[in-house]
Design a protein around this nucleic acid. Structure first.
Lengths: 119, 119
DNA sequence: CCTAATGATGTAGACAATCTACACGCCAAG
DNA sequence: CTTGGCGTGTAGATTGTCTACATCATTAGG
């Protein structure tokens, strides 16, 4: 008997691109490492599944926000190293500010006290 | 010619339930008012479309997190007033803490400086 | 030598939440 | 009597995530 689908969304939709782009800001990385980085830098809270990661990378590459080269990894295996393009850097800035805005907006709703909604 | 689909997600998936539950904490509201509240309390940043709102309300009601009664609105029209159930209050707490966690986690990734990932 | 664990990339298909777009009914104002 | 705002609702498109599986390479252990 297979495990039932419960579709626990670990990641908020739309944040993965942001996280990936951010992960590349300190230099090229391959997918596997990006996944590890996100996991560790989020304090083990955010988990990126391979079924989300690779499609996302392909998506970002198609948008020209990242570009890739095959290289040899630290562990002596072939790996596709992704790097930010300048468009990607711009996109990262856009997505960061969008994220900040959304956080502030949600915080606004969550903080809303019993304020009369004007007269 | 119809407007092309661009699927701009205004709301992060999973946050709508949180926002709705939070909106009900100060007393019963009908859907239309919830939508207005979220909009205004988020500083006009978050927009809830009716095609997202009502399915979400039905979803939450099915989960027994909210319950409804038909009443007459301020504008003398029939409206379905939703209120939080005690399970809903519990769910709200859960979702708030999940949101806080995710925010902190994303912030962790975004703040990550050129820290060596340990030896 | 063979095997198992880990590193590394990838695809197929299920699923859910959102979006766009429409429809309907009621009330009040001009 | 028509228009606009209030108020609820559904259908279908889209997309991003998830689960699950497949493949291949390298390294360590028996």
């Amino acid at each position: 008997m297979k495990k039932r689908y419960q579709s626990r969304i670990e990641l908020l939709q739309g944040t993965l691109d942001l996280l990936i782009l951010q992960s590349l800001i300190w230099g090229p990385q391959h997918g596997y490492a990006i996944s590890r980085n996100i996991r560790s830098q989020s304090g083990q809270i955010l988990h990126v599944d391979t079924g989300s990661l690779y499609p996302a990378l392909h998506r970002l590459e198609k948008q020209k926000w990242i570009a890739s080269d095959w290289k040899i990894s630290e562990n002596n295996q072939r790996a596709k190293y992704y790097r930010l393009t300048s468009a990607g850097r711009k996109q990262l800035a856009t997505e960061r500010s969008r994220w900040d805005q959304i956080c502030a907006a949600v915080a606004g709703v969550l903080a809303a006290s019993k304020r009369r909604t004007a007269s």
